[in-house]
Amino acid sequence: MTHLAVIDYGMGNLHSVAKALEHVARRADLTFKISVSADPKVLQAADRLVFPGVGAMRDCMGEIRRLGIDEILREQIQHKPVLAICVGMQALMERSEENGGVECIGLFRGEVRRFAAGQHDAKGELLKVPHMGWSEVKQRAHPLWRGIPEGSRFYFVHSYYVQPHDSAEVVGVTDYPAPFCAALARDNIFAVQFHPEKSQDSGLQLLQNFLTWSGHA
């Protein structure tokens, strides 16, 4: 049986993530258990962790620190696969420009930046911020892309994006209009800016891949 824990620090769209994971686990005929929790014991006992996030960074980091999630993550990534989503991904960086500047967990070197206002695409159309909707992701080899056609569209909704220092950690790229990091990976961690739980078939396939990923890509 696989035991999956969705980290609950009170900022989530946890129902969506949990339901999507349940859906793919059932579809793949896996015996599974999904916990939604911030309890260190539960997170330590789980085989794999999902670290979602919705909301403003200052509040997110406040709760992450208050609940000790940063320390738990630092320790648990040594032992098990972790999937970070959206603000969860951003929180893994060193710091964010949001809310006047927020120190983040720092598992990846780099910053979280806001999309510049007033940029235009190749057709000369104004690009709105937030970047909201379905954009193509150019993949770089990683087991979690298995079965997902190159250039598949995923659902994004964000005004900030991560800028990692080490480009070798970038495993997915999207243009808006300049290329930005849509997926980031190292060892046991896979982090995405888009919402796999809201990206229909491609997103569900990615979640399914995560459920069977042994980590250490």
Partner: peptide, 29 residues
């Protein structure tokens, strides 16, 4: 939200921060 894996917006009668929290927890994006 249990059956549909695309974004869901919910409107109508949203008056408090708790209403928003409830909708997000119910699966609204």
């Amino acid at each position: 939200a249990s059956e549909v894996f695309i974004p869901l917006t919910v409107g109508g009668g949203i008056r408090t921060l708790q209403d928003i929290r409830d909708m997000l927890n119910a699966g609204a994006d």
